[in-house]
């Protein structure tokens, strides 16, 4: 069986979540072709993760993400490669693309998948991480959209064959115009991060986020926050982790000055490990955490940052 993996890039660098998709496809299907759009600086990593072939789309019009055109191209690639499985990582691009491709190729689609399949059944996260549904994909063609950490990225694959891929695309796929992209450069993206450092109201104000950023920097982590913090404009909305924000599944989630409302826990409960730092020993977050420090964040966090720096040197 052949699988196609959709690989996303940021400034030309392959996303780690996409490498997870390639390795997931490899573990599931055996033979993997990956498809990547525009500049791709580190194609070797796609091979190492398990793809024997990389379809490289160089059409200038697709250098920037375009949901409808990408969907057409990916559906075409599935047909060309006779792929019966498409694997991609959950993202703001992957989500709409997977749904459109599922209609185009008549596939069964399951998203938020948290582990490798067993036969035609996958385990997906539901009720915002409060439960799982074992779900059967009932069609010959299947699309699986995975959560972060659904699989470990392989690093033992061969150098991939790179093939240009430029199918014809209808003009009707170009009716949505992207006028401008506002993006904080250089920061670790929240859904991609292995470690997330989040702050809550215990930090008292946006001016105190420096210590969150310092800790995140030492750990190569992304920064997050709770809903009230983004509602008060202390932090941008795209950092809001929780029921109605981003759901994360990092290896380590560090919650600082966060009491742990059920809506916030819903966004973090598929983290592998949770560390809570809070001066209130009764904070509900301690019940969800693996490690906890009962203490003042203003004292504990700088000490933790220093200790981590020492370990890394």
């Amino acid at each position: 069986m052949t699988a196609l993996a959709f690989v996303e890039t940021d400034e030309g660098f392959v996303r780690k979540s996409s490498l997870e998709a390639v390795s997931y496809a490899k573990e599931t299907a055996g033979d993997v072709a990956a498809i990547v759009f525009g500049e791709a600086k580190d194609v070797e990593l796609i091979g190492k993760a398990g793809a024997s072939k990389v379809l490289h789309v160089t059409d200038e019009r697709l250098a920037q993400p375009n949901i409808m055109a990408y969907s057409s191209v990916i559906a075409e690639a599935m047909n060309q490669e006779q792929a019966t499985l498409l694997v991609l990582a959950k993202s703001s691009l992957g989500d709409p693309v997977s749904a459109r491709v599922s209609i185009k190729v008549d596939a069964a689609l399951v998203s938020n998948v948290s582990g490798l399949p067993s036969g035609d059944t996958v385990k997906r996260s539901i009720y915002t991480g409060k439960a799982f549904a074992n779900t059967v994909l009932k069609a010959e063609k299947k699309i699986i959209s995975i959560k972060k950490n659904a699989v470990i990225v392989k690093e033992n694959g061969e150098s991939p064959e790179i093939v240009e891929f430029s199918p014809a695309i209808a003009d009707s796929d170009f009716t949505v115009k992207i006028l401008k992209v506002e993006k904080q450069e250089g920061n670790v993206l929240l859904p991609e991060a292995d470690v997330v450092v989040s702050g809550g109201r215990g930090l008292k104000g946006p001016e105190n986020w420096g210590m969150i950023e310092d800790l995140a920097k030492v750990l190569g982590a992304a920064t997050g926050c709770i809903k009230p913090v983004s509602d008060m404009d202390w932090r941008p909305h795209h950092e809001h982790v929780g029921q109605t924000g981003i759901k994360v599944s990092p290896s380590l989630y560090i919650a600082i000055g966060i009491s742990g409302a059920i809506q916030h826990l819903a966004g973090i409960n598929s983290s592998k490990y949770i560390l809570a730092i809070n001066k209130d020993p009764e904070a509900p977050l301690f019940k969800a955490a693996d490690f906890g420090v009962v203490g003042d964040a203003f004292n504990v966090v700088p000490k933790l940052t220093d200790a981590l720096k020492k370990v890394q040197n």
């Binding site: 409060k130 549904a133 074992n134």
Partner: peptide, 16 residues
Amino acid sequence: KTQVSDFELPPAKGDV
């Protein structure tokens, strides 16, 4: 095209 066979709750969390 999909069907839930059964549901699961996450394993209970150990003590912090």
